[in-house]
């Protein structure tokens, strides 16, 4: 069809191209969604049939899945490569400490801790979102360091030695661990499902446009600043929930570890090796990272060397990440986010 055939072209086209349709879902996606529901249901039953030894590693894995998905929301979709998400990990943990110290049930206070991290991220976003690229990454990192120092210097927050989670002594150890497990699972499921829903929504389209070209996005009517702010704050909110769950899991937190930049390195590693800007990628990346962690933890410092080597190899030979390199050429998509048009000829 040519553009210059006048008004008739559109009408004639409509008749000839009655098949024009926009597909956003597929049979594979239905199968993947059903499979996910079954998998989550099976995982929810673990405390009943597998016990504590299975729960502990899975809590770690769930937290990694959530962190990777949340970092991907911000970096993969909205293009904000933050190096300071540990700020919200710590904010969630210390908010949980504050809430539990005031007598709230620690498990009931996890959403509050997440909200506290989200609220903290709002004023922060006004400062850091004035920057972009490397400047943004460094600013977020510096901010996390400031938070770490502030906590270190605050005796009421335990200072450098850290704090234990109050209010858990009333819980039977088995129940406490099961509750932690369910919270970790819930945070992971909500993170993945939430990011998926956002990526498919108009917000997701905005975020991807802003990521590609902010100037062109603004000229196409996208509120660039607001889109970035939502991505940043929602990511912080979820990361705060993970921080609280990790605290509930270890029962102890210390500014030196919870505010450590290694958390951001892990998030970036998982998302980049899994496949940035997809839903599947961060999940796969978290699984790979978790497996490497388990397999290599006995090698001491060599663990980090091997992890780095794996990261370099994947960025060199599969720059779109494992999932991106596997799926994109074959057109696979378990969790589709795009628009596929039929009836175009």
């Amino acid at each position: 069809m040519t553009a210059g055939t006048g008004g008739g072209a559109v009408t004639a086209g409509t008749a000839a191209e009655g098949r024009f349709a926009v597909r956003r879902w597929s049979r594979t996606a239905s199968v993947a969604a059903a499979g996910s529901v079954v998998a989550v249901a099976a995982l929810a039953g673990v405390p009943y049939y597998a016990g504590t030894s299975a729960e502990q590693p899975l809590v770690t894995l769930f937290c990694l899945v959530a962190l990777a998905s949340l970092w991907n929301l911000m970096a993969g979709f909205a293009g904000l490569t933050s190096f300071g998400q540990q700020a919200y990990l710590g904010a969630g943990a210390y908010a949980l400490y504050a809430a539990a110290s005031m007598g709230l049930d620690p498990f009931a206070a996890i959403p509050l801790a997440a909200a506290a991290a989200g609220v903290l991220s709002l004023p922060v976003s006004f400062a850091v979102l004035r920057l972009s690229g490397g400047h943004f990454a460094v600013a977020t990192w510096v901010l996390a360091e400031i938070l770490r120092l502030a906590v270190t210097l605050a005796p009421s927050a335990g200072g450098n030695t850290g704090v234990s989670l109050p209010g858990v002594s009333g819980y039977d150890a088995l129940l406490r661990q099961a509750l932690t497990y369910w919270w970790a699972l819930a945070v992971a499921v909500c993170s993945v499902a939430g990011v998926y829903a956002l990526a498919r929504s108009r917000f997701g389209l905005d975020a991807r446009a802003v990521h590609s070209d902010p100037v062109a996005a603004a000229s196409a009517g996208v509120a660039v600043g607001r889109t970035r702010r939502w991505a940043y704050c929602l990511s912080a909110f979820g990361t705060g929930a993970v921080g609280a769950v990790l605290f509930a899991n270890t029962l102890y937190t210390q500014p030196g570890s919870v505010f450590g930049v290694q958390h951001s390195v892990a998030m970036m590693f998982m998302v980049v090796i899994g496949g940035i800007g997809t839903i599947e990628g961060p999940i796969l990346g978290a699984l790979v990272f978790f497996a490497l962690q388990q397999a290599l933890s006995g090698y001491g410092p060599w663990y980090l060397v091997l992890l780095g080597a794996a990261g370099i190899a994947i960025t060199l030979f599969a720059p779109r990440g494992l999932w991106g390199s596997l799926a994109a050429p074959r057109g696979w998509s378990l969790f589709p986010i795009g628009h596929h048009i039929s009836g175009t000829s």
Binding site: V22, R202, L205, D206, R208, A209, H211, S212, D213, V215, A216, A217, S219, A220, G221, V222, A223, G277, G338, H339, I341
Partner: peptide, 26 residues
């Protein structure tokens, strides 16, 4: 609405999605 002299497409989006941003937001 404007066009850019040196095109500025949303490279990661499909052609359809590029125009969809304009339809939805513009």
């Amino acid at each position: 609405a404007r066009t850019f002299q040196v095109p500025r497409p949303f490279g990661d989006l499909t052609v359809f999605e590029n125009a969809l941003v304009g339809a939805v937001r513009g």
